[in-house]
Nucleic acid binder design. Structure first.
Lengths: 357, 357
DNA sequence: TCCGTTCGTGCAATCGATTGCAGGGCCCGG
DNA sequence: CCGGGCCCTGCAATCGATTGCACGAACGGA
């Protein structure tokens, strides 16, 4: 068994423990413990407390988190489960989580599932085995067994980005309905009437509510959301966007704009348009969703809906912290407002396209 | 103090411990421990071992990592310190690390420094406080106090992507010199002679060795690496790329190609070119480095050098694991080979530019 | 038959903290 | 002057594993 300690200036120094601090301060370890723990600090009188804190400082004492966790059953660790960190929406979310946790001494442990149910289960088990105090899930489907399990087993959990249909769980999401409304209103204001929608998977709250948002916004604008002008993608991917666009165009060639459920799907539209020789925004306009990095560098730059990803992560972390510290905090639903970022992929319909082709 | 346990099927079940397993198998806890630990498994006879394993299985036993860590001083956790997860080169590296660790039971804990020295120090301290078994650093500068400290304190560490000048530390990096050589050779083959370089910070091994690689490759190709055609960026950023490009062009207007030290700097060249009305690759060619996502979507798509990021992460994790398991493993230097990805930002110099302007 | 060796298992200390409980000192009132 | 109560601090058990050491059984040889 290795001996705890570190090399300082080339010399091996055994690790400083609470005992060492107590010994130096000439008090019992329990007293030292109470001084160093903010919650019990007030139990000890000032002069003794000072002796302990100075001793701790002089020795460079750092508490052993394993001993703490073993005794208290709290690891000050939370699991963050996301589909894929390579998806550019997640890094800012993660930074938000990290920053919000930093002050409170919690650490986030990350895992990617690639949207694979089995892998999700495995990771969930491993997180529990690691004794995380809570979970932040960005992988929820509208009906999600993992979320059900968290609730059943009373594991503190906060959903992020996506949510579930059952309402008895905390989440922090973007207002997808409102966001899509922004895109539709933007297009309608430019004179578009025959607007199509390429939705994401309807089993995900994001896909579902953006789809619903599209239908509502069209109705509200006095426009018709024709079923033939709605395509459903099997995933939020470029290839699915391309496929769904081509399929859509088989059914209808009169639309003048496409509201894509996210930026990747919009990129799929770019690909398809290039293939079949259509110009954006000359032949049709496109809007995305998320405002990924580098969209402004595309040709044409993509009009999209910006989501406050960083705040989303930070808020989710705060919500979880409240639950972890406060014990049985109430279920909290937070919805953040997105904003439209108008760029060059949207323009007024040309006279030619306005007539239909 | 909360009692360890979980809710299963709505009922609270106290956590299963090694004692429970031992009791059920009618053996001592030490025996159960030895059976469940692969290293000591052979000490126990088969029939008894079987009793223990079935008992463990029936009870759904999961060892408490905190107790393990407290006793053994190993947390099976490693810290991964990177500048910024939002930089698209890091997610694939992280995935590689995660996957390579997954099998061995290690967990990576991530932290971002934003290239801030103070923050680096803080994070380093926190990692040590968390008792990580080792570190993977992607933040190294050529002379790096943090790396020095790791070596002094004998903390297992592997550098990734960037390295330091002192050679007595393990690292996994890309062959930057070779990679830049690919870009230079590609341009030279197209007929470019007056090639410029926008280097990254020379205090980073990446900036330095790409710069050196440029000079060497030019010499090797029988070309002159003129100082006036070399600009230095203060950071691997778009804005620095733009600034350095404009500055470069003040000094020299005869170059027909720019080898940028990375993709962001190349993007800065795009910005500058647009501002002053130059066309790529009509007026000059540009190459990047890293092959970030979406470069193929740019107008024009960017010729760049692809780095095997995922493998880099995986290899770094394996190198660290060898050190952690094998005790005093030798210092290991791994260099991965990049490849050229030719796209539309490079073309033969036009007759006009070939003459100089 | 008896003793020595070997092999397998149990005993108990230990890692480094937290915390309920007990005890001692001090202050104040009778 | 003495006793009771109230803080403040110390004692010791405890969390759940690992591991050096000791002990007992089984076996083989004399």
């Amino acid at each position: 068994m290795p001996i705890a300690g570190r090399y300082i200036c080339g010399m091996f120094r055994p690790r400083v423990t609470l005992r060492d601090v107590a010994r130096r301060a000439r008090v019992h370890t329990s007293t030292a413990s109470r001084v160093l723990n903010p919650a019990t600090r007030e139990l000890i009188t000032e002069p003794i407390a000072r002796r302990v804190t100075t001793a701790a400082e002089q020795l460079g004492y750092q508490p052993n988190p394993n001993a703490y966790s073993l005794k208290t059953n709290r690891t000050r660790t939370v699991g963050v489960i996301i589909p894929d960190i390579a998806n550019p929406v997640f890094p800012p979310i993660l930074r938000g989580i990290e920053d919000a946790f930093a002050e409170s001494g919690y650490t986030a442990v990350l895992a990617n599932t690639d949207n694979d149910g089995d892998r999700e289960g495995t990771i969930f088990q491993e997180m529990l085995a690691r004794r995380v105090d809570g979970l932040i899930l960005a992988t929820a489907r509208r009906r999600d067994p993992l979320v059900d399990r968290c609730l059943l087993e009373k594991i503190p959990v906060v959903l992020i980005n996506r949510t579930v249909d059952r309402g008895d769980v905390s989440f922090v999401v973007n207002d997808d309905t409102f966001g899509i409304g922004l895109a539709v209103a933007h297009l309608a204001a430019m004179g578009h009437v025959r607007i199509a929608h390429l939705s994401g998977p309807l089993t995900l709250s994001t896909g579902f509510s953006r789809h619903r948002g599209f239908v509502r916004a069209m109705k509200k604008g006095g426009l018709r959301a024709e079923p033939k002008r709605i395509g459903v993608c099997g995933g939020f991917t470029e290839s699915e966007g391309r496929r769904a666009f081509l399929e859509l165009r088989e059914r209808d060639r009169t639309f003048t704009a496409v509201v894509a459920a996210n930026d990747m799907i919009a990129l799929g539209c770019y690909d398809a348009a290039r293939e079949i020789g259509l110009r954006i925004p000359g032949d049709f306009s496109v809007t995305g969703f998320n405002d990924m990095p580098f969209l402004d560098k595309l040709q044409p730059s993509l009009t999209t809906v910006r989501i406050p990803h960083y705040q989303m992560g930070a808020q989710a972390a705060r919500t979880l912290l409240a639950r972890l510290n406060g014990g049985l905090a109430a279920v909290e639903h937070v919805t953040l407002l997105p904003e439209l970022v108008a760029r060059d992929s949207t323009a007024a319909p040309s006279r030619r396209t306005r007539r239909g082709r």
